[in-house]
Design a protein around this nucleic acid. Structure first.
Lengths: 341, 341
DNA sequence: CTGTTAGCGCTTTCAC
DNA sequence: GTGAAAGCGCTAACAG
């Protein structure tokens, strides 16, 4: 039962009767070591329960094998999936993940960035928040970074996200295809790229179908349950209410559901309802919820892959930004149907 | 526009015309520095956009100001809340968080622990998985650690969790109070402390009410949607079916809901349904779901607080284990009601 | 108050 | 193949 809690390469070297450089060579397989001495070192490491000190190594090599991930809200179910996939890929590649939650606060986001810089992470994955200054901060520091899901306005950055314009169109076309002409949209915060793009997709699809976009059927800016409830109440009380309502985030959608219930409107007979972001429980709602699904796992994995490319690749590879865009998928369930009459 | 991407304390010292120890003193406020030189240093830091190298500092001081968090599944909505609260507390105290997901795999858990040891984290928060060897591994390494939610069998460890026995009793008593005598429980994996304890709470409450516990009304071991569906089907097809069913995790609960729907059973008129873990959307289900709620944020915050106590406190403070137990709360909604007749 | 100095544990030339 | 030695950037005695 080894009891050495703190033991260094020197202890291993001493016990094995070799120099520290030999131990290092064995660990890193950087230069050949005679089989016999190799075994002695391995044994000593085992006996002493030796764990290399990653801190010391990092100081020497200048690489930490750690990346930072900053998300605006980890309790938003989309991000855990992204994080999990990224973390898996990272772990397979020998990287650790420093997780930061910016709480949708750009100042906290900046502080997290500072901390990550100080810790000398090799790269950063970032879903930014409103008013983010991350793009400037990152380019000043020249740390490899990939923006995920929520992209900054700037263009010269590496990005991985869903094609949210397509997602918006896809959703809208689904409803149009069912016969809807009056479609409401709770679009969320248009300063956030996903929400902005979905709105654009909505506009495109409506125009292509020669359908008018009414101000009364559109709400932007707010993203909470209460906001969705209020907006949906208003729309559904209109003399000519929409026959379908889409919501760009889950809380807004819950507001729509509640408003429909309040007014004893049946879904989808009286009003169709569609959400963005597909969650496990959408399927188990009553009625089950039609939704746009994003390939969160693919996004997470791809994000790390691009980041690793930036980290390991030649410096000039960083000159032209990398982009990966994934198609959204429509999951048709029972909350959408043909409009009345 | 400062363009120094890589700059050390020596650069700052040179520009300010002082020694590195003075710079260090200014940064750490460890010894007094004359105001005039202090300003010069501060200015130089600003000009060079200097970021102290946490790696070098850690190597010197032996502390990383980083903690590790290992969870079995970050896509289980309970953990993001715990993580967020812990991360918030950590960030306030100047700590960073290394996040690991063990995917319910004890071997991966061990690898994560190794990585965290190598990185010399100051402490570890851990929700362990089935067959976890973490307790032994941690005690061998003598790294401060707090077990969260999922506790190992061993007793000499620091823990923070919900009182799951009370949670089980509370849920059961609620149903008994409504008049139920035949209560089914999908208890989950009894090797996991929360599931184990809830089952115990159920038993206690049933015994106190002099109600029999029937084998046919109890399922343990499985935790997936399909398992819940199968078990609920079976129970509901019994000649004398339970009038209420509780499920120890969300996926099992969804299975119960589905089984009830299949058999055109109305909730709560035909069968009452109750879940453990309260999620945002429970309120928006149709009918809304009665559930036991755990104070996830408090658990997360408290976990970090205890860990910090272990890290900063005197060594002897680590001799007697710390425990924090939070009461569970029952959120009564519409999925539970009096049994028929 | 201030600067000089000696490492923290590791990797990496560079001679042997 | 192997070991001695020089740091990576920082902090913490220790003299001045």
């Amino acid at each position: 039962m080894p009891e050495q809690s703190k033991c260094t390469m020197r202890d291993v070297a001493r016990l094995a009767g070799v120099s520290t450089s030999t131990v290092s060579a064995v660990i890193n397989e950087t230069v050949a070591v005679s089989p016999e001495r190799r075994m002695r070192v391995l044994r000593a490491m085992e006996v002493l329960d030796y764990q290399p000190d990653a801190i010391a190594r990092s100081l020497k090599t200048g690489r930490t094998n750690a990346i930072g991930i900053i998300v605006p809200d980890i309790t938003n179910a989309f991000y855990p999936e992204v994080i999990r996939a990224a973390e898996e890929a990272a772990q397979e590649a020998g990287y650790s993940v420093l997780l930061c939650d910016s709480s949708e606060d750009s100042n906290l986001e900046e502080r997290h960035l500072s901390a990550l810089f100080s810790r000398r992470v090799d790269g950063i994955l970032l879903a930014c928040c409103v008013n983010s200054r991350a793009q400037q901060t990152l380019s000043r520091r020249r740390v490899p970074a990939v923006f995920v899901d929520r992209l900054p306005p700037a263009s010269m950055v590496n990005t991985v996200c869903t094609d949210n314009v397509q997602a918006g169109s896809l959703a809208t076309e689904h409803l149009i295809g069912l016969g809807h002409k009056r479609i409401g949209l709770l679009a969320g915060h248009t300063a956030l790229s996903p929400h902005h793009d979905r709105l654009e997709g909505f506009r495109k699809a409506m125009q292509e179908a020669h359908l008018p976009i009414l101000d009364e059927y559109l709400m932007t800016g707010d993203v909470q349950f209460e906001d969705g409830l209020d907006a949906a109440r208003r729309m559904l009380h209109l003399p000519v209410p929409p026959t379908a309502i889409m919501a760009s985030n889950n809380k807004l959608l819950m507001g729509v559901l509640r408003a429909a219930e309040e007014q004893h409107l049946r879904i989808p007979e009286d009003v169709s309802v569609l959400g963005f972001d597909d969650y496990l429980w959408n399927e188990h709602f009553n009625p089950s919820l039609t939704a746009i699904a994003q390939p969160a796992r693919e996004i997470g994995r791809k994000s790390f892959e691009l980041l690793q490319q930036l980290i390991s690749g030649p410096a000039e590879a960083r000159d032209s930004p990398l982009h990966a865009v994934f198609p959204a998928e429509l999951r048709v369930r029972r909350s959408t149907g043909a409009p009345r009459g």
